[in-house]
């Protein structure tokens, strides 16, 4: 599995423009809000968690179309399924690679963007603490959606239609963790959702990959 993750990371490095696109989208989209709403620090601070969460959600969707698409088109998916790893192992490795190349950079850049959006310093750790399970959930559910739409016509359109509704609970609890006076409850909810998705999403993704390969 380690070999597969390294292979995916190497491919991401070679397609650096695609990998950077999600990060650039996140930065640019979040930076547009002060221009549209004005630089008033109080309003920006109030909506900063929502802006960052929605932008991170949309940014993480960008590379999902090619996550399995390229492997499906060039015949590599068959090799992955014949690598000796169970299908859920392949799915888990792909999810890990997506998080390392998309989720983790988004998490790192979220801090400076939050400061730019005047998020109070005290709320910054809560934002990062919520984005950590949030981006992991996004990778897990996004990988699942990518596998379900594999081989479908207009999969790029279908993917957000499947992923975004699935991500609404994560979005609600993620934003609430930063803005609520009692952040423990939403953070625990995010952790619980992650605990459920961590074993279940790769299993479902593996089944979808097998179905696509048939």
């Amino acid at each position: 599995m380690k070999k597969l993750i390294f292979r995916e990371l190497r491919l991401s490095l070679r397609h650096a423009a695609d990998t950077a696109a999600a990060l650039l989208f996140f930065m640019i989209a979040a930076s547009l809000f002060p221009f549209a709403l004005g630089p008033g620090p109080r309003m920006l601070a109030a909506i900063a968690p929502g802006i960052l969460w929605v932008c991170a959600l949309l940014a993480a969707l960008l590379p999902l179309d090619r996550l399995f698409g390229a492997d499906f088109e060039d015949g590599s998916l068959d090799l992955l399924l014949l690598s000796g790893l169970p299908a859920y192992g392949v799915a888990f490795a792909k999810t890990a690679a997506h998080w390392l190349t998309t989720g983790l950079p988004l998490l790192i850049i979220a801090g400076p963007l939050a400061i730019m959006l005047r998020l109070p310093e005290a709320e910054l750790p809560l934002l990062i603490a919520s984005l950590l399970p949030g981006t992991l959930l996004l990778s897990l559910l996004g990988t699942l959606a990518a596998s379900i739409t594999l081989g479908a016509r207009r999969s790029a359109v279908l993917m957000p239609l499947i992923t975004l509704p699935l991500m609404i609970p994560t979005l609600i609890f993620g934003c609430a963790a930063t803005t609520s006076p009692h952040p423990q409850a939403p953070l625990l909810m995010l952790a619980a959702m992650l605990a459920a998705a961590l074993p279940l999403a790769p299993l479902a993704t593996g089944l979808a990959l097998r179905a696509a390969a048939e």
């Binding site: 491919l11 070679r14 397609h15 088109e73 060039d74 015949g75 590599s76 068959d78 090799l79 014949l82």
Partner: peptide
Amino acid sequence: WLGHLDAVKPA
């Protein structure tokens, strides 16, 4: 396995 596609990564 050798499928009808080469499964070669161009990058």
